[in-house]
């Protein structure tokens, strides 16, 4: 169990570095989706079913769809992008270096059997979804609704032409 979780963490790290440092926006978006899929797997293994479902559906699904449609709608200029990054040759090795560090970390954690900081797995909860959300964390639901609305307004304000 811990082995799988550690390997998933390692992959998350690798794909996150890829998402941040890749030259192509499309590939970064796909790497982001992969990050969240691995996170979903970890959450499922830690018996948080609902969290896993939300995570995968929102981040891998919704966000990736929106990003990819936005990217393909904007027709970025590939040649200009390439030229800018070719100038910074001295930092060209950095992403590969970081990915190597990621694999190294996973290897060390597995072999040294380092205890990841969680005590024991909780039992899977027995509440229904509505109970968990509305009864226990009602304020959070209010908050989430407001955040969605705020996000919508923010996007409209920022990207609307004058």
């Amino acid at each position: 169990m811990e082995v799988i979780i550690t390997i998933c963490l390692g992959f998350m790290l690798v794909f996150a570095i890829v998402a941040v440092m890749n030259k192509s926006l499309l590939k970064s978006a796909i790497a982001l989706a992969l990050v969240s899929i691995f996170l979903g797997v970890i959450l499922y293994l830690l018996t948080a079913k609902w969290a896993a479902v939300f995570e995968v559906s929102v981040c891998s699904g919704l966000v990736t769809v929106i990003s990819i449609s936005a990217i393909s709608l904007t027709h970025e200029e590939k040649e200009q992008l390439q030229k800018k990054y070719m100038d910074k040759r001295r930092m060209a090795m950095l992403p590969y270096l970081l990915i190597l560090c990621g694999f190294l970390l996973v290897f060390i954690v597995l072999t040294a059997k380092i205890q990841l900081p969680y005590d024991q797995l909780a039992e899977p909860s027995t509440e229904t979804l509505s109970e968990a959300l509305w009864d226990n964390r009602q304020a959070d639901v209010w908050g989430q609704i407001i955040i969605l609305l705020t996000g919508a307004f923010a996007v409209v304000t920022l990207f609307k032409e004058a």
Binding site: V20, M21, L25, T74, E76, K88, M91, L94
Partner: peptide
């Protein structure tokens, strides 16, 4: 400069 995040478009 090099350690900063790559900005979006």
């Amino acid at each position: 400069v090099n350690a900063a995040l790559l900005p979006g478009k």
